[in-house]
Write a protein that binds this DNA or RNA. Structure first.
Lengths: 198, 198
DNA sequence: CCCATATTGTTGTCAATGACCACATTGTGG
DNA sequence: CCACAATGTGGTCATTGACAACAATATGGG
């Protein structure tokens, strides 16, 4: 069972996902066609249907895979981060915004699942991806580094800022400023607001 | 030249936009079909092509119209708002997030124009829609109500927070909390961070 | 070792869609 | 009053997503 060439063709599922991700990132969801994928991979026009019942199923799989990668990057970035809360939060923000600007279409895919209450995989992947930053915020709340009265609100504000920053950066609305500068500055502003005033 | 029934049929363009907006909001962009619109409006399958050269042209027109409405709502809301900076900013945030949750697909349409450098109408409508809140922030910076060293950064943080809040709320990630509570709380956190500490 | 069986992929087909074409109808202005 | 442009119609084509029937391949029990 060599995973490089398991069945009578290549590992179609993986190759489909890879090519689909590249295509979506380049041409958008509207520019993605199952038949086109099959054509470029040299298989029949119906081979994808064996692995993904639906075009939406493929998009969902893309979103889940993207969330896994994002989670890994966040874990790594936060693992390397040293210093206080602001430094760690900045590290998280850099990784998140970096990912969001590298794969904007993928992240949009993740955030476009508002009409599907029955999709446990996506929800689970989402929670797992953000486990580390949530733990970071909760830890900071316990240590008294940030206001601790409403940790939920704090987490929400942080996520909102980063999500919004990513949207603004990918939308090209930051002009000449460098993304890193914008991220660092915005996080600084936010943390100043979250710090208890003595 | 009665605008209610100008030519030999109704004012197709407006009706197309209305129906398209409802359809997009209900079934998403993928569920929108020019032929379907024509069918439901009782015209030939090619009538829409007379007003919109392309499906994308119709989507662009939807985005521009949405931005105009959003601008009007923001102007009205900020016009009614009284009190200091935080009260006015909260009013702005309520209107914006309210709009974003009422027309999520429409707002997503606006934010999805990252690949079109040559679309002056959208850009102009965008700037016009956010003229009032930008003025609010600039005014507060001049009055010393918020840190004035980098008004651009402040504006960006505010927009980021609201955009992210809207995304989170429409994504159903706020659980049982009421949107108004979340908005007010988040804005409060943000303003506390932007206020100069004495 | 060999065949039943599920997995995987292929060919054929169908309705729907977006885009284009030539053409008809309606309103406007010279 | 008539040319002309604006608006809408019908026809057509390639592409697409989805489905059904069928073929090839790998797996597992006897």
């Amino acid at each position: 069972m060599d995973k490089a060439a398991p069945y009578h063709h290549g590992n179609l599922r993986s190759e489909l996902l890879d090519l689909a991700e590249r295509t979506v990132e380049r041409n958008g969801v509207a520019g993605l066609s199952l038949r086109g994928l099959a054509r470029e991979l040299g298989v029949s026009h119906n081979a994808p249907h064996q692995h993904f019942a639906d075009k939406q199923a493929l998009l969902d799989a893309l979103a889940v895979r993207g969330l896994r990668r994002l989670g890994d990057e966040l874990d790594k970035g936060l693992g390397r981060a040293r210093g206080g809360f602001e430094e760690r939060l900045t590290a998280f923000a850099r990784v998140y915004v970096g990912f969001a600007t590298r794969y904007p279409a993928l992240l949009a895919l993740v955030f476009a699942h508002k009409d599907d209450p029955a999709r446990p995989e996506l929800r689970e992947a989402n929670e797992r991806a953000f486990a580390a930053p949530v733990a970071l915020i909760e830890g900071a709340a316990e240590c008294g580094e940030i206001v601790a009265d409403e940790p939920d609100r704090v987490a929400m504000a942080v996520l909102a800022v980063l999500q919004g920053l990513a949207a603004i950066i990918t939308g090209g609305l930051i002009g000449d400023r460098s993304p890193d500068t914008v991220v660092t500055g915005t996080v600084h502003s936010l943390v100043q607001g979250l710090r208890p005033r003595g």
